[in-house]
């Protein structure tokens, strides 16, 4: 069916109005100033003034908030520590996910459906609840410390909750399915006779893995890394609930600026910078998705 044009326009217009246009508003807001009024910013467009109102609006926009972000080490630290946390936890997720995905692809065919469902199932349960579950495990009188103390591995409770370690655990745990599934999909498609050929030609199992299996699974690895890194960079719930006040992450900074400090212009400037950082990985991710879907 040649899709009906009028019908087709609905999702297009919907996304233009509710996804793209709001970014314009965020950019405009990031150039405004904080003010004691409702809503709390200035300048505001005065429609009754018509053309002059619009000109006055543009005359009062400036880059003050960006200068503020660049000056205050709080924001720079938040950006760098978010980048580090997101990169490290993407790597950790990959290390946990790869053996699991590999084993799933090696499993007998009749088990695979069940194994995939078991990986997806936690993803269907509430994200907030899964993060919450770790609080009871990681806190100083929590279950992990109780276990380690009773076994005698440690003599006093470890402090894990409200540290960066807890954030790593939370991110790896929450985003694991996003890494496992693309890698599994890539490995499952692989032709097993390639491995046999490599081994017939004298490669050890390990070198056959590095020379044949791993390169073939790279598209899945890449997709998984994008799917973890991009949302992790702007993550709010995990650093807020598990990282405590010690963990500086940009998503949390934005949230606090907006809801606690009520500084909409600075919150918007933070969002614009975060988006500018993310545009490259998002663009690469899309290119990769398109390539995969065209194959």
């Amino acid at each position: 069916m040649k899709p009906n044009r009028l019908l087709m326009a609905i999702p297009y217009i919907w996304l233009l109005v509710l996804f793209l246009a709001p970014f314009g508003i965020v950019i405009k807001m990031s150039l405004s100033d904080l003010a004691v009024s409702i809503p709390p910013y200035t300048p505001q467009l005065d429609i009754s003034e018509g053309w002059a109102g619009l000109r006055a609006l543009f005359a009062n926009l400036d880059f003050e908030n960006y200068a503020w972000l660049a000056d205050d080490p709080l924001y720079i630290n938040a950006f760098t520590s978010s980048l580090i946390i997101a990169a490290v936890s993407t790597l950790l997720t990959l290390l946990v996910a790869y053996p699991l995905a590999y084993a799933m692809a090696c499993a007998p065919r009749r088990w695979r459906g069940l194994l995939v469902m078991l990986v997806i199932l936690p993803f269907w349960t509430s994200f907030l609840i899964r993060v919450y579950a770790w609080i009871g495990i990681l806190k100083s009188e929590g279950l992990l410390n109780q276990l380690l103390l009773s076994v005698g591995v440690i003599s006093e409770p470890l402090v894990i909750l409200n540290t960066t370690t807890a954030v790593y655990i939370g991110i790896v745990y929450s985003y694991l399915p996003f890494m496992v599934l693309p890698i599994y999909a890539a490995l499952e498609k692989m032709d097993g006779s390639l491995l046999e050929a490599a081994e017939d030609l004298g490669a050890s199992r390990l070198s056959a893995f590095w020379l044949v299996t791993f390169p073939l699974s790279l598209p899945g690895v890449l997709a998984g890394c994008f799917l973890v890194f991009i949302p992790a960079l702007g993550e709010f719930v995990i650093p807020d609930l598990l990282g405590g006040s010690n963990t500086l992450m940009i998503g949390k900074t934005l949230y606090v600026e907006f809801f606690s400090n009520l500084d909409w212009p600075v919150a918007s400037a933070v969002a614009v910078v975060l988006l500018a950082i993310l545009i490259v990985p998002i663009f690469l991710f899309q290119r990769q998705q398109q390539k995969v879907s065209e194959q």
């Binding site: 702007g234 709010f236 907006f258 919150a267 975060l274 993310l278």
Partner: peptide, 9 residues
Amino acid sequence: VMPEVITGL
């Protein structure tokens, strides 16, 4: 993949 804080804001 958009961070939720950006979409929300």
